[in-house]
Structures are given as C-alpha cells and as structure tokens.
C-alpha cells in the first residue's frame, strides 16, 4: 500500500507539469491573446513597450515559458491585471468558500444518493424506484442555472426562507460566533442544495445499479439463507460492497462539482473560485484565469488520486489493478 501511494504520487508530478504547460501553451502562446489583453487601446507605443517588458512579453517564448514555470514552482502565480494583487492572495481568499460549498454539496450528494438508491433497490421496479428514476433523469438533465434561478425565485423571493445570495449577512461581522455560524449555514443551504442535487441523481443511479448487481451475488443469497433480516442484508451485506465503487464515483464527481461551482457561485454571488473565474473571464484577467484553470485541473487530479487510494485501502483486490 505504501509503495502504491508513493508510485501514484510520483506519477502526479509529471501530470501537474503537463497541466501547467498546456495552460501556458493555450493562453500565452496563442497568437495575440495574451499580448492583446495587456495592450490597451489608449496606450502610445512607448507605454505599450514598457508594459510588454513588465510582463516579459518582449522575451522569446521559451524564456517566457521557463521564467513563468519557475515562478509557478515558487508559488508565484502572477499579479491580476485588474486588481493588481497577487493571484495567490486572491485564491487564498476564494478557496475556503468554494471548499465549504463543495464539501456541503458533496455531503448532500452522497447522503441523498445513498438514501434514494437504498430505498429504490429495496423493491426494484416498485413505485419509488420508478418515480426516483424519472425524477433523477429529470434532475440530471435540467440545466443547473435554471434550477438555481428557480430556487432563488421560490425559496428566497417568494417564500423568503433563505437569503438570495452571498455567504454572510451584511452585519455578520458584528455577530457573535454562534450567530455568525448560523448565518453562514443559512446562506449555505440553497447553493449547496442546488450544487449537490445533480450529483445526487448520478450517485443514486450508479449505486442502485451496484446494489442490484450485488443482491444477486452468492454471498447475499447465503446471508438470506442464513435467515438474516432483509434490512440487515440490505444495509450491511449489500451496501458495504456497493459503497466501494461509490468512493470512486465521488472522485469522479469532483470535476462536475468544480464546473458546477461556477454557475452556482455566480447565481448566488458566492465568493468562491468559480465566481472569481467568471469575473476574470469577463475582464480577460488572464493571470487569474490561468491560475484557476490550473487549480481546477490539479484538484481533479488529486481528487481522483485520493479516490483511487481510498478504494485501494478499502478493497485489497483493487490494489493490483491500480499499480
């Protein structure tokens, strides 16, 4: 197991390098794009040259690449074109809200997914199974921005149960610790639900299939034959092996979650990485776009690594496959 971890970690490094290089290739090497973003129509020739020198655009491409890569390795992701602040500081601020939102969504995804799958697998092709399949299909097909807009309309504007946006109330800095936490959770409910719902549909669908597969396996029949209660068979003997692949599934749902965060954070003005990415895209703030894109890819790589390792830790049979 330890060797597996070391090996996978070693494999991660070249992938991260490749991801960074691809980002550089797309953004900086693409003709005109980076230089255009630096250029401003109002500049005269001398100012333009000065700016190009400042961003190193007067250097040959390979030198630009090496100095950029060196900076990235030192943890220097450049300076935002718009706010002039270091991108790392911007990310440090945007990351915690995104992790919070993503974590809550993932939790909901998993809990709801398991609950629905178990209920559906209890009586395959029963009414709940049919209804949940259709609803799940619908949820997965509905565009998330549409669902989020509707959720704001219904739960924030018409019913007034939850705030329409942001992570904290305007007066939160004056609240006591407990009240502040409650305020945060209150703001978290709608966006986390919108983000987690689509994932839950996928998890439920996958898990239901896995549960049904396992049900027909020999050791389940044996358990039944031993006279164990149906509930115990389902919750203990069937769910546990079915959850193993679900761990991988959660790893796979990470990219979906990361992508989804852009839409959800935009609709809810949630101060995370997705919103920062959209704002940067609107303003063509390339250093920020590059950094967040890389970060997203690295997160996906790390996520799938953790899922693989978790799977291996839980199931010895998988260790061989993952070598």
């Amino acid at each position: 197991m330890r060797r597996l971890v070391a090996r996978r970690l070693l494999l991660l490094a070249p992938m991260v390098w490749l991801v960074a290089t691809l980002t550089f290739a797309v953004v900086v090497a693409a003709p005109g794009s980076y230089a255009d973003a630096v250029d401003h129509p109002g500049l005269d020739a001398a100012q333009r040259e000065a700016l190009r020198a400042r961003y190193g655009l007067d250097q040959p491409l390979h030198r630009q690449y090496l100095s950029w890569l060196g900076a990235v390795l030192r943890g220097d992701l450049g300076v935002s074109f718009v706010t002039k602040e270091p991108v790392t500081r911007l990310l440090g601020r945007a990351l915690p809200p995104t992790l919070l939102l993503g974590g809550a969504a993932l939790l909901l995804d998993f809990l709801l997914g398991v609950a629905v799958a178990v209920a559906a697998a209890r009586r395959p092709h029963g009414w709940f199974d049919r209804v949940s399949t259709v609803v799940g299909l619908g949820v997965a097909g509905l565009p998330s921005f549409w669902v989020a807009g509707l959720a704001v309309l219904v739960f924030a504007l018409l019913l007034g149960w939850f705030p329409a946006s942001h992570m904290l109330s305007a007066g939160a800095d004056r609240m006591s610790g407990g009240a502040r936490l409650a305020d945060l959770l209150h703001h978290l409910v709608l966006p986390a639900a919108c983000l987690g719902l689509a994932g839950a549909a996928g998890t439920a669908r996958y898990l239901r299939a896995a549960l049904l597969d396992i049900r027909s396996e020999r050791f389940i029949l044996a358990a039944r034959a031993r006279g164990l209660s149906e509930r115990r068979v389902l919750w203990v003997h069937t769910l546990r092996p079915a959850l193993l692949p679900a761990i991988t599934l959660l790893g796979l749902s990470l990219p979906v979650l990361v992508s989804g965060s852009v839409v959800i954070e935009t609709v809810f003005s949630w101060p995370g990485v997705g919103l920062a990415l959209l704002r940067a895209a609107q303003a063509r703030d390339l250093p920020v776009i590059m950094a967040i894109t890389m970060l997203g890819a690295v997160a996906v790589l790390v996520g799938s690594l953790i899922a693989d390792l978790g799977y291996a830790a839980a199931d010895p049979r998988a260790r061989e496959d993952l070598r």
């Binding site: 490749l18 839409v263 895209a281 390339l286 894109t293």
Partner: peptide, 17 residues
Amino acid sequence: ALLAFPTLFLLILLAAL
C-alpha cells in the same frame, strides 16, 4: 492531462481568449 481540466473551466478559458 487535458481530461483533468474541468470542462467548464476549459470552456471559460477558451471563451475568454
């Protein structure tokens, strides 16, 4: 490596460029 990029991120990057 390309698959590691979340699709929407890649799209936003390209759309911004």
